[in-house]
Simulated scan of single mutants.
Amino acid sequence: MKKLGLIYNPVSGHALFKGKIDFLIDLFQRHGIVLTPYRTRGGGKDDLGRFLRDIRPEGVLAAGGDGTVHAVVNAMLESDTDVPLGILGSGTSNDFATHLGIHGDWESYVERIAADESRRVDLGLLEGHGQYFINVVSAGMLTGIAHEVKSTYKNALGKVAYYLKGIGEIPRLRSFSLRIAADGVQYEEEAFLFVIANSPVVAGMKQIGHDIAIDDGMLDLLAVKKTGLPQFMSVAADLFSGKSVTERENILHVRAKSFEIHTEEELCSDIDGEYGPLLPLRVRTLPLALSVYC
């Protein structure tokens, strides 16, 4: 039988996934696939790379939110586990899975996994830190909200909890000086925040920009320039309603293979919804570095 590793977060989302494990094991077995599960514990107690090296799976499943997928992707790269990744989104935010069109119809998804339907996608790398990201790295206003919302609120309200927290942050809008080198081209802006995205789905917002692709060997930087509160609210309204903002005059949009980001003040980054390193950052694309079931 074909063997897949299943890495699941027992507390993500509404903490309901652990009640579906027997259903999934049976579903996969009916397709000739055996699952080897690993229950994450968090707090630096997991050694996912060792788990993957020990079981040598023919595919890997990540069950949880964006943070779980981030951890699994890094473990796969660290352990040289170049097999397809499947995403069973069960967290509050499942941005990359949403972009791939992977939703709650797990029976259909398991059929596609059994048929080995997969594609290669790009990854991002934070150089000097050895961290890979599958979807986004960001910093500035609103970008750390995921860490500040209590898990009880996330489980009860889902993405609404993020939006409510974000609205509460708006009165404290504060800009910073941003210096960017994108494939060697220099930009300077006073900005509220920036994101470097692999897909157009970020923080539950389904279309931050047009023509953002996960397999073009490029990353897209969007920075919200310093502006008045009405203009900022207008950008936020477009984002929350799923409209692209890349064409707006108060948005800097740059597509490149590599970025260097510097600021005049100390800022902490966010990487796939998890705490990232302090700026400055050096980011580059790893073209088609990962295979995903889709």
Rank of each mutant, 00 (worst) to 15 (best):
S90M: 09
P57L: 11
G59C: 06
A115W: 01
E127G: 12
V72K: 01
I113S: 04
L123E: 09
H99P: 05
T92G: 13
R39M: 14
T92N: 13
A62K: 00
A115L: 03
D46T: 08
D82P: 01
G89T: 11
I87H: 03
H99E: 06
V136L: 13
P57K: 12
D66C: 13
E127I: 07
L126M: 09
V60I: 12
L52Q: 01
S108C: 12
G128D: 10
R39G: 06
I102Y: 06
H99A: 08
G44N: 03
G86M: 08
L48F: 03
D46V: 06
A97I: 09
A63S: 14
Y109P: 02
P57D: 12
W106R: 07
A71Q: 14
E127D: 13
K45G: 01
L77F: 14
N135A: 08
H103F: 04
L48C: 05
G101Y: 12
T98Q: 11
E117I: 00
P57A: 13
R53N: 13
S118L: 09
T40H: 11
V34R: 15
D80L: 09
L35F: 06
T92R: 11
L48T: 05
F133M: 06
L77G: 08
D105I: 08
F96A: 09
V69S: 09
P84W: 10
S118Q: 13
G91K: 04
F51N: 08
R53E: 11
G67L: 12
D80M: 11
F96W: 07
G42W: 05
L77Q: 10
A97L: 07
V73F: 02
T92D: 05
R119I: 10
I87G: 06
E78M: 01
E107L: 11
Q131H: 15
L61A: 02
I55G: 03
L77E: 12
R120H: 14
L126K: 08
Q131P: 01
I134E: 00
G124D: 08
G64D: 05
D95C: 07
G130A: 03
R120P: 07
A114K: 10
I134V: 15
G124K: 09
E58V: 03
I113M: 15
V73G: 11
T81A: 14
A75V: 09
L100S: 07
A63D: 04
V69G: 08
L52F: 07
G101F: 05
D80R: 14
K45C: 03
H129V: 00
G91E: 02
Q131Y: 13
N74E: 10
R112D: 11
T36N: 07
L52W: 04
L61C: 04
E127K: 14
T40P: 09
V34M: 15
P57Q: 14
E107K: 14
G101Q: 04
V72Q: 03
V60E: 06
E58I: 01
G86D: 10
G49D: 10
V73S: 04
R120L: 13
I55E: 12
V136D: 04
D80V: 07
D66H: 01
D80Q: 14
H129P: 12
Y132D: 06
